[in-house]
């Protein structure tokens, strides 16, 4: 239960911290940490404009997306506590719930009949499709290392294998989680949320027509997604045996560092050329396969 609330709390700060880091790095004063939350308040106060072309899908898609993300957060464990809902293969459910949200956001973009949004929808569909195997291969290696098949069991037993090389593996795991989180959230280097030209956008162009309440839901969802992936990172990095307060403060620290990394990365890095993206994403699957090789060595199946 604590994990779920920690995720909710960090989601509040997360985008603000990225924003602060980016403005500090570019030498601006920039908005405060709570600016994204204030933006949501503004959006919630606003009315909505709907396109005449759109229909039912456009109305329900943001709600389904957010509900999916909220429910996905329920299977994330914290410290040595089990997640609120934990079962064998819950990461399959986790991934497919997020995919369901994405399915709806793609078709809601197509619902507007705009060529710009179609373009974004197609790119998002392609890139997230390519990222799917990387996530599953990574989780499969986790399952292979620990012998368990749920997030809670895997992370509770992650560091108990007694093999110190697991550290090398966890570094690759962290790297992959960060990259997958970036793709899932449509951030650099795959997509740049701050780009100003519709032709080069991916996620932003899909939500061109959303306004008011729906847009707020979409933003909340993306903040939550950051916090969820941050929580996964924390679970990989921090062993589960420590005291609860230490764990909680480490949780916040990991989330903070994650946000700072994203902020700096986005400040000093250019976005990939659009046709480089598939290569970039497929490379992740290959790295995941390298992680798999390491596990084979760790579990003494190989060499």
């Amino acid at each position: 239960m604590a994990g779920f609330f920690l995720i909710l709390i960090t989601a509040f700060f997360f985008p603000g911290i990225i924003l602060r880091i980016k403005s500090l790095a570019s030498g601006r004063r920039g908005p405060g940490v709570f600016q994204p939350v204030k933006d949501i308040r503004v959006l919630l106060r606003k009315g909505s404009v709907f396109s005449n072309t759109t229909g039912l899908i456009f109305q329900i898609a943001p709600a389904i997306g957010l509900a999916g993300i909220l429910c996905a957060a329920l299977v994330i464990p914290f410290a040595d506590q089990k997640a609120i809902i934990s079962f064998q293969g819950d990461f399959v459910f986790f991934s497919y719930l997020l995919a369901l949200g994405k399915f709806f956001s793609i078709i809601s973009a197509l619902d507007t009949g705009s060529s710009f949004e179609g373009m974004g929808a197609n790119r998002e569909a392609l890139f997230s499709m390519l990222a799917e195997p990387a996530f599953f291969v990574l989780l499969a290696t986790f399952a292979m290392l620990t012998g368990f098949t749920s997030f809670s069991d895997i992370f509770n037993h992650f560091y108990f294998s007694g093999n110190h090389y697991v550290l090398i593996y966890s570094i690759i795991g962290v790297y992959l989680f960060i990259q997958i989180a970036m793709i899932e959230n449509s951030r650099l280097p795959v997509d740049d949320p701050k780009t100003h030209l519709e032709l080069t956008m991916i996620h932003e162009v899909m939500i061109l027509d959303n306004s008011g309440f729906d847009k707020a839901l979409i933003h909340i969802g993306s903040y939550l997604k950051f916090a969820i992936y941050g929580a996964l990172l924390y679970n990989v990095i921090v062993p589960s045996g420590w005291s609860i307060f230490l764990q909680a403060s480490l949780f916040l620290a990991v989330q903070l560092i994650f946000a700072v990394i994203i902020g700096f990365a986005e400040s000093f890095r250019a976005r990939n050329k659009m046709n480089k993206n598939p290569k970039f994403i497929l490379t992740l699957t290959v790295i995941a396969l390298i992680a798999f090789m390491i596990i084979l060595i760790l579990t003494e199946k190989f060499i």
């Binding site: 072309t53 229909g55 899908i57 497919y96 995919a99 994405k102 399915f103 793609i106 078709i107 973009a109 197509l110 619902d111 507007t112 009949g113 179609g118 929808a121 197609n122 569909a125 392609l126 997230s128 499709m129 390519l130 990222a131 799917e132 195997p133």
Partner: peptide, 19 residues
């Protein structure tokens, strides 16, 4: 699974949505 999602967002989106 990913390819199927790509395919059916296309099929549903193009056939049933838009103008």
């Amino acid at each position: 699974g990913g390819l199927a999602i790509f395919c059916f967002t296309k099929a549903f989106g193009i056939v049933f949505l838009g103008e």
